Simulated scan of single mutants.
Amino acid sequence: MTSHSLVIRRLSEALQRANSKASIRWKYSSNSPREAAVLALLADARTDTTATKEMRIEDLGVVLTVRAAGLRRHAGEVSLCGGAVDATDENAVAAAIRETHEEIGVDPRRLAILGPLPSVPDHTFETRVAPFLALVVGGAQNASSSTSATPPNASPAIARFDKLSLVLSPNEVESCFVMKIADLLDSGNQAFEQFRGNAQLRIPTWYGPNNERIWGLTAYIIDNMLKTVIQPAINEQKNNS
């Protein structure tokens, strides 16, 4: 089994274990909140100078965008790819895949969806945001647009972020960058703040390569993913190395 296949398998298994446990039950402002969906999208964050023979989970990075300055809401903020679920979308994950293609130009066939992360409200508590853990994989011939929790059987290579040739939507996205898992887990890169005004719920904030501030809902989703999926998968990796 290739190192890429091992990474995908460990992430999938850690996600399945995390989804079997209870998460926070949020109270929304209505019984029928609006629906939105995002991708916690991972790519190979190595470059030609840092790539090694064997891929490890720490080599992955989270793909993030800076929202365009002209947007009416959250202009200039760091965000995961995604948006509102439209009536024409088959389901929430289909909306996240569509929005990712529209925002940064990733071919849906190159998105391997591993499964859902816990939903969380937006700052108004009127919208339920459904995150999904996903990978950008190699050539389209090996990729899958399946929305099941099973990664592609072809065991594709996880795509290098610096090789993606992204096409950004100028009306929606100012820039796109990747934050390496190893850097996100480094306590020296973290500052903490309350989330949703809850003194009992403190989450880290980070800064990107050009001082982009990662905070709020995006930081909450990333922090939860790191704690419940990424770190357990890394622990398994260490135990089996």
Rank of each mutant, 00 (worst) to 15 (best):
E35A: 08
I221R: 03
V178S: 11
V66I: 12
V66R: 11
E58P: 06
S119N: 05
K53A: 13
Q194H: 14
K163H: 08
R67H: 07
R56H: 14
H74T: 08
A149H: 10
I222P: 09
Q16D: 14
L164S: 06
E90S: 14
E77A: 12
L60C: 08
L80C: 00
A43H: 06
R196V: 04
V173E: 00
T52H: 10
G70H: 13
V120Q: 03
Y220Q: 12
E99V: 05
T218E: 00
A14R: 03
F192D: 05
G70A: 11
G83C: 07
N31T: 10
E54I: 13
H123W: 09
L114D: 07
L80N: 00
L166I: 03
R17P: 07
V167P: 04
A22R: 14
R196L: 11
S79K: 13
V85N: 06
N235Q: 15
L168N: 05
T49H: 13
N240L: 14
A191E: 11
L166F: 02
S79W: 09
E103F: 00
A96F: 09
T228W: 09
D107E: 06
K21M: 11
A51T: 15
E90V: 15
I214N: 02
N224G: 15
D183H: 12
R34V: 01
D183V: 03
T47H: 11
V93A: 10
A37S: 09
S144C: 01
I24W: 05
L185Y: 04
M1I: 14
G197Y: 08
R202P: 02
K53G: 14
A69D: 10
R196C: 08
D44M: 09
R196E: 11
T150K: 15
A18C: 07
N224V: 11
A43G: 07
G139M: 06
T47R: 15
A130K: 12
S5A: 15
D186L: 05
R9L: 08
G76Q: 07
A45E: 07
K53S: 15
K180C: 08
L133M: 12
T2P: 14
Q190K: 15
A96N: 09
I234A: 11
I158L: 00
R9K: 11
I222Y: 06
V106P: 00
S79D: 07
A96M: 06
P204V: 08
V173L: 00
K27P: 08
S146P: 01
T50L: 11
N235Y: 07
K238S: 10
V120C: 05
V129T: 05
C81V: 02
L166G: 05
S169K: 04
T127D: 01
A51R: 15
W26G: 04
V63F: 06
E172H: 09
V62C: 06
S3I: 10
R10P: 05
E193G: 10
L164T: 01
S169P: 00
E54P: 08
D186M: 03
A87F: 05
I97S: 02
I203D: 04
Y220W: 13
V85A: 06
G105C: 01
A43E: 03
Y28L: 04
G105D: 01
G208Y: 02
P170D: 09
R73Q: 09
G70D: 12
E103P: 00
S155R: 13
G197T: 07
L42G: 01
L114E: 07
S12G: 13
A130W: 04
A18E: 09
R9I: 04
L11F: 09
F192Q: 13
I181G: 04
A233D: 02
A134H: 02
L184D: 03
